[in-house]
């Protein structure tokens, strides 16, 4: 009786999804004006796109420009829509799909607080050294490390810190830039 309520896939009879979702890093050059971040984030939520990571900061003060780096997971068709919809926003200058344009440099910074005593502290410092994480704060019972690198490197470091007394982590989200002589 309630057969019509059973989920039957997409109600709009789009062809079965054959495209595989991909993770892409987009770099968005925008006017640094009030509300721009809300516009970009609002676009993603309103149209049902994913945000895996988002980093925003002013990059060219004299020109009033900010760079937004956003990591999203979507099929190629949706990725194109995301790019075109972003470009439609009035304060957006340019959108570059860094992943599509070649191997971009991607870095993230994390601050990692680890608490512990005795043997654990020695092991913690040894691993930090291996990962080139800097000690930026230390007490007799804790360390705060600053680590920079690809997100996967930070993931590994954090995983190793768990049994050694990981207390908390903050991450900046991804910053990315294209390789080679061309700018955006």
């Amino acid at each position: 009786m309630n057969a019509h309520l059973l989920p039957t896939g997409s109600p709009y009879f789009t062809a079965a999804e054959t495209q595989i979702p991909e993770r892409h890093t987009l770099s968005v050059l925008v006017d640094n004006e009030p509300g721009i971040l809300a516009r970009v984030v609002g676009l993603f939520t309103a149209r049902g796109y994913n945000i895996d990571s988002l980093t925003v900061s002013e990059t060219e003060h004299e020109k009033g420009l900010s760079r937004i780096t956003v990591v999203t997971v979507a099929t190629p068709k949706v990725l194109l829509q995301i790019k075109l919809q972003l470009e439609r926003l009035v304060p957006v200058h340019k959108v570059h799909d860094l992943t599509a344009e070649g191997k971009a440099l991607e870095r993230e910074l994390a601050l990692v607080k680890v608490a512990g005593t005795g043997e654990h502290r020695v092991e913690t410092l040894r691993l930090a050294d291996a990962f080139r994480a800097q000690v930026v704060d230390a007490t007799t019972e804790s360390f705060v490390f600053e680590i920079t690198g690809k997100p996967s490197k930070i993931d590994s470091f954090i995983a190793l810190m768990v049994p050694l007394g990981l207390l908390e982590v903050v991450r900046t989200g991804l910053a990315a830039i294209s390789r080679g002589p061309e700018g955006m």
Binding site: F13, T14, A15, K77, L84, Q85, R88
Partner: peptide, 23 residues
Amino acid sequence: RIDAFSPASTKIHVDIDPSSISK
């Protein structure tokens, strides 16, 4: 029904809004 929409045609689309293309 989109998967049965004009199955045999070559489609030309003129629009001023790039995001309307192939949406």
